[in-house]
Structures are given as C-alpha cells and as structure tokens.
C-alpha cells in the first residue's frame, strides 16, 4: 500500500463531497414531500388513491435503482421530440436533474412506508384528547399527529438518509462527478483501482458517520420527555484521590 498516493487521492476526492451531499439532500428533501403525499394517499381510505400509492411503492421498491436511473436518463432520451414539445426537455437534458429525479422517486417509495408507520404509531388516545380540546383538521395534524409521528419515524428515516448517500454513487454512471465518479476518473489516470476505492469507501464511511451523529443529536433534541432528568450525580472521584 502506498500511503502517499492514498493521501493525494483523498485530497482529490474531497472535491466530490459537495456534489455527493447536494445530490443526497436535494433528493431526500424532494423525496420527503413525495413520501408524505404517498403516505397520506395510502391512509386516505379512497380506493383509487390507495391503490395508486401501493402500486407506486411496489414498482419503485421492486426494481433496482440502477435500472430506474438508466430508464430515466437514456430511456427517456429516446423520446426527446415529445419531451421538447411539452417543454420538459430542459429538465431531462441535464444529468444532474435526471439523477435527482431518479433518487427522489426511489426514496419517496421507501420513505412513504416509514412515514406511514410513524403516522400509524400515533396513539389514538392522544388524537382523541386533542379532539376533545376542540382541535381538528390541519391544527390537529400540525400540533399532535405530525410531531409524534416524526419522532417515531426518525430512526428509520435516519437509515434512509444514509442509504441515499450511498445511492448517490450510482449517479457516477450518468456522468456525474461526485465521489465515486472522481474515483473512477482517478483510476483511469493511475490504473490503481484498489487503493482509490479504499479511499473512496473511507470518505463515505466518514460522511455517514457524521450524518448518523447529526441525526442522533436531532433525535435527542426532539425527545426531551425520554431524557433522564439531569440530576447531579454523586461524584466518586473525590473519594478515590
């Protein structure tokens, strides 16, 4: 192992991190909105909406993301004249937006199940109590259901975010120069695959470790009721000295 080379590679790969994070967070943000809509459709009790959301989740969870990316990027390229007519081509022309679209549609499917789980875990007593106080509709959702559901869903959503960070590596296949794309480029110049991939893996590991910590801190901040009261612990050190 040539550590000097690995350090150089590390420094070069750092410049791919902004794009990796950009792709992850943009698609997680759009995906969350989509997931919310899908979850509400599933729970709406309207058969057509419920059926559509189910089919959507089945299709996007049942096919590899790589196939979805190829389908959106190269597949839709086959229909350029039609897309141009509809004025959508400006969007599909850019690999960045194709990657965002594929990642968003994908995470939307997974996250909608997480959100649905969270919404369903809200104790009905809480809802009833709120109703008894005269809350209803959006106010009930905003003040009671949503905060509790978010708290419940957060650990699972945290893993989903990590999965998305990992999934952005597939965007390298459609010419995006994020961390994996840069790694492939460095390999093409140096022909040293193993060292470069180890360094790239390390970068993802560090990124995901940091994100996990942030989510954990967020979880802690959201659940003050589960924290132990901060009593002053009896200090034992003094006795030892």
């Amino acid at each position: 192992m040539d550590f000097g080379f690995m350090w150089d590679t590390f420094l070069q790969l750092l410049s791919g991190i902004p794009l990796t994070l950009n792709l992850s967070f943009t698609s997680v943000a759009f995906g969350a909105v989509l997931a919310m809509v899908l979850a509400l459709m599933r729970m709406s009790g309207i058969r057509a909406l419920d059926g559509f959301a189910r089919a959507y989740v089945f299709v996007f969870r049942g096919t590899p993301l790589l196939v979805q990316i190829f389908l959106i990027y190269y597949g839709l390229g086959q229909f350029r004249p039609t897309l141009q007519e509809w004025g959508l081509w400006v969007f599909f022309r850019e690999p960045y937006w194709c990657a965002i679209l594929a990642l968003t549609l994908n995470t939307g499917a997974y996250a909608s199940e997480i959100i649905r789980g969270g919404l369903q875990s809200v104790p009905h007593q809480q809802v009833e109590a709120a109703k008894a106080c005269g809350m209803s509709g959006f106010l009930l959702f905003r003040r009671i259901v949503f905060p509790i559901a978010v708290r419940q869903a957060l650990p699972a959503y945290g893993s989903e975010i990590i999965l998305m960070v990992k999934a952005t590596s597939l965007a390298s296949i459609i010419t995006m120069m994020e961390v994996t794309g840069l790694a492939a480029k460095i390999i093409s110049q140096t022909f040293r695959a193993v060292e470069v991939f180890i360094v790239a893996g390390l970068i993802y590991l560090i990124l995901n470790f940091a994100i996990t910590r942030i989510i954990m801190a967020f979880e802690w901040w959201l659940s003050p009721h589960l924290r132990r009261p901060s009593t002053v612990e009896p200090r034992l050190e003094a006795a030892h000295v």
């Binding site: 390229g77 350029r80 022309r93 850019e94 690999p95 296949i173």
Partner: peptide, 16 residues
C-alpha cells in the same frame, strides 16, 4: 465523460 461510446452517441442524438 461516458462509460461507453454508445452512451455518448445516444446523448448526442438526444441533444445533451
């Protein structure tokens, strides 16, 4: 940069 020449052919035809 593309993985294959076939892919950049497609993207030229697609106007990317």
């Amino acid at each position: 940069e593309y993985k294959t020449t076939e892919q950049h052919d497609l993207d030229l035809a697609a106007g990317r």
